[in-house]
Design a protein around this nucleic acid. Structure first.
Lengths: 338, 338
DNA sequence: CTGTTAGCGCATTCAC
DNA sequence: GTGAATGCGCTAACAG
C-alpha cells in the first residue's frame, strides 16, 4: 500500500543522540533556558542543523496547552475593509509570534459564527478575533465559552469581550459637517445594508449632525455596499433638483453614484458634491477624485492583537473598547453650494 | 500566582466515565467507526453534549500526524487578486475539512518565502499553497523539503510542485485582438512591475498578438499595479496624438489611465479605447465602464485545494499544470477606431 | 462490539 | 549544569 518509504523526520531524541546529550538538554537550548553550558549549547545547535531538525509545535502545544495560534472569523474577505483588517491582524500576530487561522464566512448569521468559533476552539487556538460588523454576529459572540480570550471588531456588547472599532459616528459627522460648511442646505445619504454596525454608526452620525444644525433630514437611500446600489441611488438623486450634496456610506457606492450622475449629465462637484467612506486605493482616481473618510485598518488590526494578547497573558481583563479615529480626506468631488 | 481556579475542560476520559464506557469507545463514536452499538453510541453522544465536550484536535494531530491544516503564503492580501484567491482557497479547504493558516508577506523575496514555509512546516501543516506570482518567490519554492505537498499559484517550474494559474497570455491576446478587430492600428500597453509572472504573461500575449498581425510594437509603459502609475502612463499617452488604443495590465492602472485621459480632455472611447485586466467589482462603474479580462479566482482556489489534497492523500504525484481560462468582458471603454 | 495497552514528541517536575 | 521519569489527550493496534 505505502509506496513511499517515507523517511521519518528527525525528532528531539535524534538530535540528542547526535549531540551526545539527553533530549532534555535539547529542549533547553530550543527554549533558551539559562542553565546550559555554552559548549553544550553549541554542540546541540550543530546537531540540529546537521540533521535539519525542526521542532514539532503540535507536540509542544499538547503539553504547554498553548498553540500560539489565533483564530480569525470574518465576513467576505474579498471586501477592502475586512481584507485590510485581516492583513493588519496577521502582521501584528506574526510579529508577536503567533499564527493566524482564518475562517471566512459567506453569511454572518449567529449559527455560522458560532460554528466557526467552535471549529477554531477545537483546533486549539489561544484566542479569537471576530471581524463581525453585523448585529447578528455580535449575538453569536454572546454564546462564546466564557474564558476564551476574544476580541471583536465593530460589535457586541458582552461585558467580557473587548471591542476594537473605528469611530463611525465621528467619520459620518466629519463628512456631513464638511458638506454643510460648504454651504449645502442639507445632505442626502446612501446607507449601507441594515444590521451592520457601520451602517448604523454612519447613519447616526449623519442624522445627528443634520439635526444639530437644524437642517431637514431626507430619507436615506438604502444600499448594500456594492457599486450597483450606489448607481441606483445616484439615478434617483439625479432626478431630484433640490439635491446638492450626497454622503455615501462607502467608496464603492460613491463610485456608483458618480457613474449615475455622469450618465445623467449632473456635474460633480459643480452641481452636486459627493463624499464617500473608506478611502480605498482607487478613490483618488475616480472622476472626480473622491473626498472621503479614511479608516486606519492597520491600527485596528494592531489593537486587536494587543487586546487579545493582554487577555491571553494575564487572564480575563476588564472589558475594553478601543476606538480608532478616522481621518477626513478632501479631494475634488466636493465644492461650495451654488 | 494563579488567580483563576480555571476549571479544566472535559477530556475524552471524562466523557467515558460519564457514559460508563472506555475512552476508546468515545473515540470510536467521534470518528464514526462502524463497530459501535446504536445505544452505546447514543449514551456517549448524550454524555458529550451534557459535558459540553469538544475534542482536542492538537492531541489528535500528534498521533495521526495529520493536522488537517493547510498553510498559505501570499503577498499583500489587500490586493484584489490575492484576496480573492485566498478566499477561494479557504472556502474549498473548509469544505474539504481543512483549516487554513495564512502568512502574508510584505515582500516576496526568496528568504521571506522560505522562512514562511519553514514556519508553517514547524507548525505541522499538511500542505502548503504559495500564492507566488513573482519569479523570486518561485525560486524559494525550489528549496522546499521534497515530499511536502505543495501547490503554487502562478509560478515555479520545479518538477514536483504543481501549478495552478490563469492563462495570462490568452487574456492579453483577447484584449489586444479585440482592439485590433475594432480597427486600431496598434495597441499600447501599460505593464505590471518586473519580476511578476502576470506581467510577463500579459506582456508576451500582447506583443505576440501585435507581431502576428504585423503591427508595430510600441514600447510598454511601466507600472506597478497602482492607479497612480496608470495615471502617469495616461498623461504620457494623452500627449501622443497617434495613440488610439491602450491595454492596461490591470483594472486599477486602467482607472488611472482613464483619470488622466479625462483630465486631458481625451474622450474615451471616442478618441481612445482602454482595456483593463481583472474585472474588479468597481470596473463596471468606471467612467466609462471598463472593458476588461475577467479572472476566475474562485476556480483557482478550488483547483489549488484539489491538487493539494491529491498529493496529501496519495503521495507525490506527477507534476501538474492547471490552467484556468480567462473571460473577456466588453463594456463601454472600447470603440472602433476613428 | 468493546476494553486494554502503547505510544505520538515534547516540556515539566524532580533528582543528581 | 544535566539526566531520568511522567504525562498532555488522543488514536492505533491488539485482545477478549
Amino acid at each position: 500500500m505505502a509506496t513511499t518509504p517515507k523517511r521519518r523526520l528527525p525528532v528531539m531524541a535524534d538530535v540528542a543522540k547526535e549531540a551526545g546529550v539527553s533530549h532534555q538538554t535539547v529542549s533547553r537550548v530550543l527554549n533558551d533556558h539559562p542553565n546550559v553550558r555554552a559548549d553544550t549549547r553549541a554542540r546541540v545547535e550543530e546537531a540540529i542543523s546537521r540533521l535539519g531538525y525542526r521542532r514539532n509545535l503540535v507536540a509542544r502545544a499538547l503539553v504547554t496547552k498553548r498553540s500560539r495560534m489565533l483564530g480569525v472569523v470574518s465576513f467576505d474577505t474579498t471586501l477592502y475593509g475586512p481584507a485590510s483588517t485581516i492583513y493588519g491582524i496577521e502582521q501584528a500576530a506574526r510579529t508577536a509570534g503567533y499564527f493566524v487561522s482564518i475562517v471566512s464566512l459567506k453569511s454572518l448569521d449567529a449559527t455560522s459564527v458560532r460554528a466557526a468559533i467552535d471549529y477554531l476552539t477545537e483546533q486549539g487556538v489561544d484566542g479569537v478575533v471576530v471581524v463581525a460588523p453585523q448585529r447578528s454576529a455580535g449575538r453569536a459572540l454572546e454564546s462564546l465559552p466564557s474564558g476564551t480570550p476574544a476580541v471583536a471588531v465593530e460589535g457586541t456588547h458582552r461585558a467580557d469581550v473587548s471591542v476594537v472599532c473605528i469611530d463611525q459616528f465621528e467619520g459620518a459627522r466629519l463628512a456631513t459637517r464638511h458638506l454643510l460648511d460648504l454651504g449645502h442646505e442639507t445632505v442626502w445619504h446612501v446607507s449601507g445594508p441594515p444590521d451592520w454596525l457601520e451602517t448604523e454608526g454612519r447613519l447616526a452620525g449623519w442624522r445627528t449632525t443634520l439635526e444639530a444644525a437644524g437642517r431637514p433630514v431626507p430619507p436615506p437611500l438604502p444600499g448594500d455596499w456594492s457599486p450597483r446600489t450606489g448607481y441606483e441611488a445616484g439615478r434617483r438623486l439625479a432626478a431630484m433638483d433640490e439635491v446638492t450634496a450626497v454622503f455615501a456610506a462607502n467608496d464603492q457606492m460613491a463610485l456608483g453614484v458618480l457613474r449615475a450622475l455622469s450618465e445623467e449629465g449632473v456635474k460633480v462637484p459643480d452641481r452636486m458634491s459627493v463624499v464617500g467612506f473608506d478611502d480605498i486605493p482607487e478613490s483618488e482616481f475616480f472622476s472626480p477624485p473622491l473626498t472621503t473618510v479614511r479608516q486606519d485598518f492597520d491600527a485596528v488590526g494592531r489593537r486587536c492583537i494587543e487586546a487579545l494578547l493582554r487577555q491571553i497573558d494575564s487572564g480575563p481583563v476588564a472589558y475594553e473598547r478601543l476606538v480608532v479615529p478616522p481621518a477626513f480626506i478632501v479631494r475634488s468631488s466636493t465644492a461650495p453650494a451654488r
